[in-house]
């Protein structure tokens, strides 16, 4: 299944190439805007312009790398009825879909790789302050992203149309991941909300660790592990309820 996901990414390379173009454009625009906003100020909310630009470049790269296709594929397979075959396999459904997503991400990263230097050129980057911490928190953040995507996908077994829900989810998750504006700039209530939601682990937290804005990683790491465990349990519960509905109602 991993292999299929990987090949799936290559089969749709034109769409991924377009995504890469979007990524370059977005990083470029963010750089223009934030440079203008900073003007002559040396730093804001404890971030220098240099760190901020490095942060934004990274956060956007991450956001594109942790994007998931799995909910769209699941939705399509439910509507076309081919989900029947997935359910008839000896391997668990969620395991198949997670494997698909892992392969798909690997394929996307392969296509993303040549664009990375361009993005870094258009944006800006500094040497990592805490490389290993960055990698660990990012990988866990990716796991959270896949778990959430699977959770959203399960809605497709209950509702006929989840296009709008997915779109909303994508917008909310990108915003609260801090790909446009770092979470340190979020005011009051919004800041608290962003702090509580898990989306920051896909963007803000790893990138902030990279640029040294967060220095003690033990706290975020523990919370991330708790999220992974909690979502794992939630996913198992949601799937058993969904599966019960499928076997009784025929989906």
């Amino acid at each position: 299944m991993t292999r299929v996901g990987f090949l799936f990414a290559l089969a749709y390379r034109s769409s991924i190439v377009m995504t890469c173009v979007t990524l370059v454009a977005q990083v470029f625009l963010l750089r223009m805007i934030w440079t203008a906003v900073y003007g002559s100020r040396a730093e804001a909310a404890g971030l220098t312009l240099e760190a901020l630009l490095a942060y934004l470049t990274l956060a956007n790269l991450q956001s594109f790398a942790t994007q998931t296709l799995v909910s769209r594929v699941i939705h399509h397979r439910i509507r076309s009825g081919t989900v029947f075959f997935d359910l008839a396999r000896p391997i668990g459904y969620l395991r198949q879909m997670a494997a698909f997503q892992a392969g798909n991400t690997a394929g996307s990263l392969l296509l993303l790789a040549p664009v990375v230097p361009v993005v870094l050129l258009v944006g800006s980057i500094t040497a990592p302050v805490n490389g290993p911490g960055y990698v660990v928190t990012l990988v866990l953040g990716y796991v959270i992203a896949v778990q959430l995507a699977l959770l959203i996908s399960l809605l497709g077994f209950w509702m006929l149309e989840i296009g709008a829900v997915s779109l909303l989810y994508q917008l909310v998750s990108q915003f609260f991941a801090g790909t446009m504006v770092p979470l340190a700039f979020f005011p009051g209530f919004l800041g608290t909300l962003a702090e509580v939601l898990p989306f920051k682990y896909m963007g803000y937290v790893p990138a902030a660790i990279y640029v040294g804005h967060i220095s003690d990683i033990s706290g975020p790491l523990l919370v991330e592990l708790a999220w992974v465990a909690g979502l794992w349990a939630l996913l198992a519960l949601a799937w058993s309820r969904t599966h019960r509905r499928v076997v009784i109602q025929g989906g």
């Binding site: 299929v4 799936f8 089969a11 749709y12 081919t82």
Partner: peptide, 9 residues
């Protein structure tokens, strides 16, 4: 009426 084959591969 349906296929278990992956359409694009």
């Amino acid at each position: 009426q349906r296929s278990q084959l992956w359409w694009d591969l």
